[in-house]
Amino acid sequence: MPTAVQEAHAAHTTTGPGTVRVGDMTLGEGPPAVIGGAPGGADATSRPMGRWLSLRGHHGARDARRALTEERARWRGPLLVEPFSAADLPAIGDLADGVIVGAAWMQDFRLVRAAARLGLPMVVQRGPGATAQEWLAIVDYCAAEGNDRVVLCECGDRTRGAEHALNLGLMRAVRARSGRPVLVHLGTDAGLAGAAVAAGADGVLLAPEAGEETVAAAVEATALAAAVTVPTARRAAPRTVADARAQIDRVDAALAVLLERRAELAGVVQRLKPVGGFAGRDMERERRLVAAMARRAPRLGEARLARIMNAVIEAGLELAEQDRRRGTGR
């Protein structure tokens, strides 16, 4: 008989292709997820979307049901749990929203199959040195148990310094090949959060002990990367006018971020140039800029891009002049 958590999950798993629902968090569409880390913070926009708990570090000495009950008292949102052994699975099935197959257990096929039979969403971490084929084979094991709600998670390979080097290229290739959501495990360092999302990740996994500042940094970096890169990196063909307009809205949002940043940098140039403003325009450089852009956007061509960039440059110059007069140049 399914548990209350499993019934609630089953009632809320109607998502589009390539998406997986974990509690009220959808992986594979919408904003990139930040999972793990401290749940505190006054600003809800800087909090993680989900939490995860690992029972592996206790080597079976900690009672899984008690640990999950304590975690549930602290966190009401989506909760994923990494078991130490199959003995932890009944408690996970009763109290968690998803199960994590840790990198160390990726090829423990009995544990993978037993976890899949819970019917909960699964996050499968790539084991050190595992190939794309070996990683994706775990998806087949889960499917054989009737569970197709699988999310992949890149954890990196061990280096000589005992650190883990993330393979974002492999992550991107596996996402394209499988069509499944992919996370990237960052540990306690949010420094690569933006790069992970820019490479195609649907979210990042932070260590449970990651502090509030790390979580806030990851949330900010993933949101910015998603706004700027995802609308252009993922070119899903729209099937309706509404879909097309929604994609246009996302591209426009990315344009707004980029235009604001360009204007900011142009303002710096105006302050540093001997002759700034409209009188200091370098028309030859602008022509080279347009020609280079035309090579990246051949359908628009140089003539159209010249008109667009002239408007962009003039708007930046006007803003720089306005800031100069107000004494607010940055």
Rank of each mutant, 00 (worst) to 15 (best):
Pro2Asn: 08
Ala4Thr: 08
His9Met: 06
Thr14Asp: 14
Thr15Val: 15
Pro17Gly: 06
Val22Gly: 01
Val22Phe: 05
Asp24Trp: 08
Gly30Ala: 04
Ala33Thr: 03
Ile35Pro: 11
Pro39Ser: 11
Asp43Ser: 15
Thr45Met: 15
Arg47Ile: 03
Thr69Val: 10
Ala73Ser: 06
Arg74Met: 14
Arg76Pro: 07
Phe84Thr: 06
Ala86Gln: 07
Asp88Leu: 05
Gly93Lys: 04
Ala103Gln: 08
Ala104Gln: 11
Trp105Asp: 10
Leu111Glu: 08
Leu111Val: 11
Arg113Leu: 05
Ala114Leu: 10
Arg126Cys: 01
Gly127Ala: 14
Gly127Met: 03
Gly127Trp: 07
Thr131Arg: 01
Glu134Thr: 02
Ala137His: 09
Asp140Met: 09
Ala144Pro: 07
Ala144Trp: 07
Asp148Cys: 04
Val150Thr: 01
Val151Trp: 14
Gly156Phe: 03
Leu170Arg: 14
Met171Ser: 12
Ala173Lys: 08
Arg180Ala: 09
Pro181Ser: 08
His185Lys: 04
Gly187Ile: 00
Asp189Trp: 07
Asp189Lys: 05
Gly191Arg: 03
Ala193His: 01
Ala199Phe: 00
Pro208Val: 13
Glu209Gly: 01
Ala210Leu: 07
Thr214Gln: 13
Val215Thr: 08
Val215Ser: 03
Thr222Met: 00
Val228Pro: 06
Arg234Leu: 02
Arg234Cys: 02
Ala237Ser: 06
Pro238Gln: 04
Val251Pro: 14
Ala253Gln: 09
Ala254Arg: 06
Glu260Met: 09
Arg261Met: 05
Ala263Arg: 14
Leu265Asn: 07
Val268Tyr: 12
Lys273Phe: 11
Ala279Ser: 07
Met283Asp: 12
Ala294Arg: 01
Glu302Asp: 10
Ala303Gln: 03
Leu305Phe: 07
Ile308Trp: 03
Met309Asp: 09
Met309Tyr: 12
Ala311Gln: 02
Ala311Phe: 06
Val312Ile: 14
Ile313Tyr: 03
Ala315Glu: 04
Arg324Leu: 15
Gly327Trp: 12
